[in-house]
Nucleic acid binder design. Structure first.
Lengths: 219, 219
DNA sequence: ATTTCCCTTAAGAAATTCACGTAAGATCAC
DNA sequence: GTGATCTTACGTGAATTTCTTAAGGGAAAT
């Protein structure tokens, strides 16, 4: 049975040594090599590509997220495990977005690190409890925003105005709107002016954006 | 110390009895009452509002998500715990969106149910492992979509065209664009015509939507 | 009953856009 | 070098929108 080949990227010697010490006793793992910068990382893995790349977020010449992006393009088979002291939601989100398969905080345990390595080697995703909690918070926040945003500013428009705004933002020109609603084109214009004044919008562009933001039309 | 007041909504007698049996021995909980439909639920809680509402998703006259929505409006202090046999991502998302504080699958354990009740009573959110996993999957999926979508259709526009489109979609009129870029207004018009033809867009409205979709401008 | 708000219509003037066509210099790939 | 593409630019007439001002009728509120 072949071992899981691992490459380590972190700019602190001590951290790399610590991780190696934790992993050395694991029979099925093989530490292929290590690097302390993005440049060094790509030079070395080009010669001998690992299965798993363990990446720190902050590095001298670049960052783990940028490396992850390049990896997913250049080595689609390679799995990236982010190991970072930052548990900031943006870092997590962007890491996942960039293609990372796992994310662990640096104060993780040996057991968790091993679980993570095995999980992502098997094609799973792995996030530590701390990270999962942050992701869940974010999930909840997003779901709530999704609910609140459409009605945060109660729409002060009349139903007729909304009707006209809807058609306009769907791409109909005034003439078509007036035909559809069987009213004069002048009326359509007046309505639009009213809307713009009410909402203090200065251009039709803003009008369209308003309609989209307030879910009067689909994007 | 006052007990946590609980109200149960599920259309199956057996399920309600099962939950009651699980909770009856918990000293700090008080089962206020139960209902088998949305209508019955609102009638009863109006008389004696509970702290926590345990809700099934599927009900004869409505569903748990609709009830949750009404609860968050009419009883903002009341916490909703969804207990459903469905672990569908949409149900979970919409439940959270509607204001549910927790979500458990029906095959949950007594311990987990108690943990959930206590957690959401304390103002926390609670999701079982199964549900958390689904939420995480969704998180990952969304992060990936967020990454893929902007480049699904490679933008066939030149950098100058993108520049013009950006300014236009930001709300500048042609004259302002021509001033900013120090080119003729005719040129701005020509560029816009080129863009519209390339993308087969029929109106400026579509042009703006295109710019937003492709993240050339913020909404 | 009076007021207020909404919907409607209207029109002229100014500004803007649209839809054509035309064209010339720059850059880049073959 | 040659052709293709990009960028720049102009013209013209028609279409459209925008701005502004004005006003009547109906419905709802006070």
């Amino acid at each position: 049975m072949s071992k899981i080949r691992i490459f380590l990227v972190d700019d602190h010697q001590l951290v790399r040594d610590g991780i190696k010490a934790l992993l050395i006793s694991a029979e099925d793992l093989l530490i292929l090599g290590e690097a302390s910068s993005g440049r060094e990382c790509f030079e070395k893995i080009a010669l001998d590509p690992p299965d798993i790349l363990i990446l720190d977020i902050s590095l001298p010449d670049t960052n783990g997220i940028e490396i992850t992006k390049r990896i997913t393009v250049e080595y689609p088979e390679m799995r990236v495990l982010i190991l970072s002291m930052y548990t900031n939601e943006d870092f997590i989100f962007n890491s996942v977005k960039a293609g990372a398969r796992g994310y662990l905080p640096k104060n993780t345990s040996r057991e968790e690190l091993l679980s993570a390595i095995h999980a992502i080697y098997e094609g799973e995703e792995f996030f530590s409890d701390t990270i999962s909690r942050i992701m869940l918070k974010s999930y909840v926040r997003k779901a709530k925003e999704d609910d609140l945003s459409p009605q945060r500013g109660p729409i002060p428009l009349t139903s007729r105005e909304i009707e006209i705004l809807k058609l306009f933002a769907e791409g109909y020109i005034n003439k078509e709107i007036s035909d559809q609603l069987d009213i004069s084109i002048r009326t359509v214009e007046t309505h639009k002016n009213h809307i713009m004044k009410k909402l203090e919008l200065k251009s039709t562009v803003e009008l369209i954006k308003y309609a989209i933001r307030n879910k009067i039309v689909e994007l």
